[in-house]
């Protein structure tokens, strides 16, 4: 196993780098005045990133297909959200669908 010192340094470097990514956007943003159009594009960029996260985390695992249960659960949640079901219902239905399918032996 890797030595404790290496683990601490690696963890701190990862933490510092992650913090730099997180702090850079707000720091740069506070220095410039953004037009409405630019604000809209920033918000769009965040929505695009979140949508891509939803799609990749719902469908893929280690670059391959994640199986049936997980995408089916997310799809059920998505349909419920689209039909304006409460957030709690959406999330619990997604989890219950995936867990239920796995109980039935669906991967």
């Amino acid at each position: 196993m890797t030595s404790p010192l290496v683990l601490v340094v690696a963890t701190v470097v990862l933490g510092a780098g992650t913090f730099a990514f997180r702090a850079a956007g707000p720091a740069l943003r506070s220095r410039v005045t953004l037009s409405d159009r630019a604000e809209h594009l920033m918000a769009t960029a965040a929505v695009v990133l979140l949508a891509a996260l939803v799609a990749t985390s719902a469908l893929l695992e280690d670059g391959g297909f994640a199986g049936v249960a997980r995408p089916a659960g997310v799809a059920v949640g998505g349909v419920l959200a689209w039909r304006k079901a409460p957030f709690v219902v959406v999330v619990l239905a997604a989890a219950a669908t995936a867990a239920g399918l796995r109980l039935l032996g669906v991967p």
Binding site: A43, T44, V47, V48, L50, A51, A52, L53, V54, S57, A58, A66, A69, R70, P71, A72, G73, V74, G77, G78, A81, W82, F87, V90, V91, L92, A93, A94, A95, A96, T97, A98, A99, G100, R102
Partner: peptide, 28 residues
């Protein structure tokens, strides 16, 4: 427990209203 399906569903439910805007939907 299906938690791997719950997290994408959380983000999806929160993002869905933003997708009403046509250009945002296209971009996504």
């Amino acid at each position: 427990f299906g938690l791997d399906a719950a997290f994408p569903a959380v983000l999806l439910a929160l993002v869905l209203p933003s997708l009403k805007d046509r250009s945002t939907r296209l971009a996504a």
